[in-house]
Design a protein around this nucleic acid. Sequence first.
DNA 1: TTGTAAGCGTTATCAG
DNA 2: CTGATAACGCTTACAA
Lengths: 354, 354
Amino acid sequence: MKDVATRAGVSVGTVSRVVNGLPNVDPQLESRVRKAIDELAYRPNAVARTLRLRRSLTLGLVIPDITNPYFAELVGAVESAALDAGYRLIVANSMDSAETEGMHLGALLDYQVDGMILAPTVVTEHMPMPVTIPCVVVDRSLIGDRADVVSSDNRAGGRAAAEHLVQLGHRLFAIITGPPHLSVARDRLAGFVDGLSAAKIRVPEPLMYAGSFDYSSGEEGVAQFIQAGLAPTAILASSDQQAIGALRACIDAGVAVPADVSIVGFDDIPVASLVTPRLTTVTQSISAIGSRAVDLVLKPRGGAHRRRRVVLPVSLTVRESTAKPGTGLPSAGTSRSRRRTRPTKSKEERHAIA
Amino acid sequence: MKDVATRAGVSVGTVSRVVNGLPNVDPQLESRVRKAIDELAYRPNAVARTLRLRRSLTLGLVIPDITNPYFAELVGAVESAALDAGYRLIVANSMDSAETEGMHLGALLDYQVDGMILAPTVVTEHMPMPVTIPCVVVDRSLIGDRADVVSSDNRAGGRAAAEHLVQLGHRLFAIITGPPHLSVARDRLAGFVDGLSAAKIRVPEPLMYAGSFDYSSGEEGVAQFIQAGLAPTAILASSDQQAIGALRACIDAGVAVPADVSIVGFDDIPVASLVTPRLTTVTQSISAIGSRAVDLVLKPRGGAHRRRRVVLPVSLTVRESTAKPGTGLPSAGTSRSRRRTRPTKSKEERHAIA
DNA sequence: TTGTAAGCGTTATCAG
DNA sequence: CTGATAACGCTTACAA
């Protein structure tokens, strides 16, 4: 900046003024400054500016797993909302590690982001929570009232999924849940239970599988259900990834979806409408989540007010993975399953390439 | 920091020394300082430190589309490599917009990242390329030698995919390519052509579809191929997303994969081994890409040297979506296709939830 | 309308 | 071993 100033024969103050488009600067000088600026290819140092201004025009987003399509979508949504509001977005991925998450949180604070949006991996009670900057939690709910919260109506979604299946005539269900310490997981499960118990249906213990939200949990879940030998005709999954994993496992076990068993997912990630059969699922408006979250961070409640919660409506998208009850999941070692089963460990050859 | 200093009854210099673990500080003072630090919950201001040190211990990663599972994986890979090297990672998502990309690039520079890893959307010749900081391009190749490059051996991968199909007995191919201005897309195509022409096979114009790497391009490609009425028995896709889209379109058109037509993808994203049939695809080692890229940024070539290129080996993973040639894609309006076709616009009902 | 200078929170040099 | 103090690059009173 000093260089620009000397080159244009003005003071740094003046350069600063033209850079920031402030009024009251002589057009003559202004053009000289501009010329100097691009002759020197000058770029203002955002770090110095942040230090001085004490704000960075940057928001931080921390998510547990960028590899999860749901969060990938979320990043996109938050990013575009932030951009619209004139803010930059830094995203930090904690890879499901509480330690990394803490590190990122600290780092974002240290970098003076103006606000933070988080989807914590872990219960964050003991985290160095930034009371100093506005901070909203998405897709989770947090103990205490230190942060605002925005999430989908997971419970209603769960209920709708269950009701849909009940209406189709299903009576024996299997449920795959997410990590029990996550409110999303608990809420979705509560929704399932709501919908089921309204029809006086209870899910037997062996037909509940608690996993992560990942593909693998879907596969593991149906393995357990088959082991249980109760032949449920419908599976309520807590995420589309789980549902897709479950679908995979069903097919591997020779059971047809939805003819033999119905599956419903949750989230409506892009690939949900591409798998075969297309997934019936609960769709959330992820862009709404993004923009509401950014709204809240940018328009912080006055310190006195209670913590705000916004709960966004979801809808049920009925596609092809649900139908009237079929014969249900096979029992382990049953002749039928044996007849129809392809080798569970499907062949896969890996060829190196010279 | 000043507060800490006064509280501990020392100077800021001393505080700085203990914060940074420098030697030569009296243990007495040190513990007083530490006490003050956590009594005040003091956190050093990274912005100020960056300003002073002129380095941020932060790397920037800019990608075109976080929503693409391939890039999501890449983020994960780069992030963990960066962390291992003691660097933080900021990721910026340009949503396939050249403008946003430029903005992010500038922003990262302005934020004084110590190095940058990019997968540009657009040809970046005219970009404000940061000659000032080390900078490596992944999954692309750039005109000029301003940046090092790391990518998979896309051409070899393409060749292997084509050869695999040829060996299976296929003679009439359809190809779905990516955006022609992207070197990845061109290299993969070149690989396909290599493998095919070794067997004296040419792909007729109407059986080439140029799209994005996205799901939709797969669907659109198949639509065009059916329109063409040439009944190819194999489809070479340039990404798994395309392959999955193509698979979807095939199923909708009543053609069985791999019985009627074979499909091979590229990348081996997680969902590739979950769809039905599991995708035969070219798998790249994304973690290798991440760590090599970080290596290069962190160990910059001396200015004099030529630009470095690292090309990582790929392998062909044969799963279920490829087999001996079948009857091929139907022709538009053919009786067979009409007989087997389900409604192309599959039904999908959306239910709002009260 | 413009220049000067203080200060943002650090680190590093240099005396003590 | 410790304390002043001068940068780092910018913005903004305040003075001219």
